[in-house]
């Protein structure tokens, strides 16, 4: 995957977040403070602008710029967390001009580690980690098993979606949903839902760009 691929990923996320904005905000209204959709929409719109204004020339550069922009523009819990995730992913990719699926898989693990370090959430705490961790695992597993990028991303996206849905019955232990105690159960975590959008965007980009998918009907 080249720099262009990562720029398109970011564009895809921007579009997905715009489309999902009100849904994310509604999820956040139920167990948080009704701003998650607006937060990410503002953040990724700024990412798109930043990428257009100062186009980076490496995949890592794209992700670091995206992460820094999120930190600068989002605020809230998700700003520093997603910002750190993208920055740490970008830093893991170093200066490479082209990135393999295996490299991206371990970058995703680095991003996850960044979120964990900053936010201190474990899996099962009903946060974005519940979507990000299974996604990183699925991607690594698929690559290890010799899957191509498209397969790896599809597996990651499916795992993220499943992880997000699996937050519904959980009782939150991190973030503002934790204030609700038992009442947080029965609602999907907004951050997990947005992680599913972000990883889903990766699958969408790969599917669109892959020669295999282009040869399909």
């Amino acid at each position: 995957m080249d720099t262009r691929f990562f720029v398109i990923w970011m564009e895809e996320i921007t579009a997905a977040v715009r489309a999902g904005r009100d849904h994310l905000t509604r999820l956040d209204a139920a167990i948080g403070d009704a701003d998650h959709g607006t937060n990410l929409d503002r953040g990724f719109a700024a990412v798109a602008e930043a990428l257009a204004a100062r186009p980076p020339d490496t995949p890592g550069g794209v992700l670091v710029l995206a992460g820094s922009t999120l930190i600068r523009k989002v605020g809230g819990a998700s700003g520093p967390l997603y910002g750190t995730a993208f920055r740490d992913m970008g830093k893991a990719l170093g200066d490479a001009a082209d990135v393999s699926a295996a490299e991206l898989a371990s970058a995703l693990e680095a991003g996850l580690a960044g979120v964990r370090r900053l936010g201190g959430a474990e899996e099962g705490d009903k946060t974005m980690v519940d979507a990000l961790a299974p996604a990183a695992r699925a991607m690594a597993r698929t690559v290890d098993a010799g899957g191509d990028p498209e397969e790896a991303f599809a597996a990651a996206a499916a795992a993220a979606e499943e992880g997000a849905k699996a937050t519904v019955p959980l009782v939150a232990r991190k973030g503002r949903a934790s204030y609700l105690g038992a009442r947080s159960a029965g609602h999907e975590d907004p951050g997990a839902a947005s992680t599913a959008l972000i990883v889903g965007a990766l699958r969408a980009v790969a599917t669109r760009r892959s020669p295999r998918s282009e040869s399909r009907p």
Binding site: D33, A34, D35, T38, N39, R42, I71, R72, K73, V74, G75, G76, A77, G79, P80
Partner: peptide, 11 residues
């Protein structure tokens, strides 16, 4: 002041 119910940003 951040956005509505959103903490300010580091900058």
């Amino acid at each position: 002041p951040g956005e509505i119910f959103t903490s300010p940003v580091p900058d």
